Amino acid sequence: MENNPNNNMTQQTEEIINHEQFEDMRDLLEEDFADLIQVYLIDSKKRVATLRTAQQENDHANGYETAHALKGASANLGTTQLVKLSSQLQECCRERRIGEQAALIEDIAAALERAAQEINLRLEQ
């Protein structure tokens, strides 16, 4: 697929992270925000590993639960790509098609890396 939006270098920051939602969470949590970010990134990486295992083991229930948890945590921070991709994976699990979703899970892993980079840039500001 040549027209893969994940490979589009012209993507804007707002497509990775919703600026308003991110800043609202930062304002709400104040000094605890940096700790939340670290926990989110660590937990999200663990969830991606869990998703890979669920895909390999054709474990729809665990895949669904993990995708749901990742979607919720990502929504809180406004990491919009992760929300969208996690939602897609959740639907695949509901349809009992997790075994076919290795590429989608790798898209989730890549979106997490992009989000982590963007978050770190924002924290430096």
Rank of each mutant, 00 (worst) to 15 (best):
I37T: 04
S86R: 02
H68I: 00
L82M: 01
D35L: 09
K45I: 02
S87P: 10
N18S: 12
M25K: 06
L85P: 03
M1P: 15
E65Y: 03
N7I: 15
L51T: 02
E30D: 11
N3T: 13
E100N: 02
T79W: 07
C93Y: 01
S44R: 08
R26V: 11
L85A: 02
E23Q: 07
N8S: 01
R96L: 09
H19N: 12
Y40R: 05
A61I: 08
R97N: 06
P5I: 00
L82Y: 00
N3E: 11
N76F: 08
E65K: 02
N3H: 11
S87G: 12
V48T: 00
G63Q: 07
E113M: 01
T79R: 08
K45Q: 03
Q21M: 15
Q81L: 03
E118L: 11
R122N: 04
Y64K: 06
G72K: 01
I42Y: 15
N4D: 03
A49R: 10
K45M: 02
R26F: 13
R97T: 04
L28A: 08
Q125V: 04
E2P: 04
Q38V: 14
E15I: 09
A73W: 11
L104S: 02
I42W: 14
Q117Y: 11
N76G: 09
A34C: 14
N18H: 10
T13W: 12
Q88G: 10
G78I: 05
A110Y: 02
D27L: 14
E15K: 13
L104W: 02
Q55V: 09
K46F: 06
N6C: 06
R114V: 01
Q11I: 11
I108W: 01
D59Q: 05
Q38Y: 14
G63A: 07
E57R: 10
L28I: 13
R52I: 07
Q125M: 08
V39P: 13
E14T: 04
I108D: 04
N58E: 15
L41V: 09
T50N: 05
E15R: 09
L85C: 04
Q81I: 03
M1W: 13
A34M: 11
N3V: 07
E91R: 12
T10K: 12
L29Y: 00
S44Y: 08
K71H: 14
G78N: 03
E23K: 06
A103V: 10
N18P: 09
I98K: 07
T10Y: 14
L121K: 14
C92Y: 04
L29N: 00
G72C: 01
L123S: 02
A61H: 13
N3I: 10
N6T: 06
Q12K: 15
M25H: 06
N18T: 09
E118M: 12
K84Y: 14
Q21G: 13
L104P: 00
R96H: 10
G78L: 02
N18R: 12
A103E: 10
E30K: 05
H68P: 01
N120S: 11
Q125H: 09
T53E: 13
Q101K: 13
G72Q: 00
N120W: 10
D35A: 09
P5H: 00
L112H: 07
M9T: 15
T50Y: 05
E20G: 08
T80K: 11
E2K: 05
V83I: 10
I17H: 07
L85W: 05
A109Q: 00
E91G: 10
R122E: 05
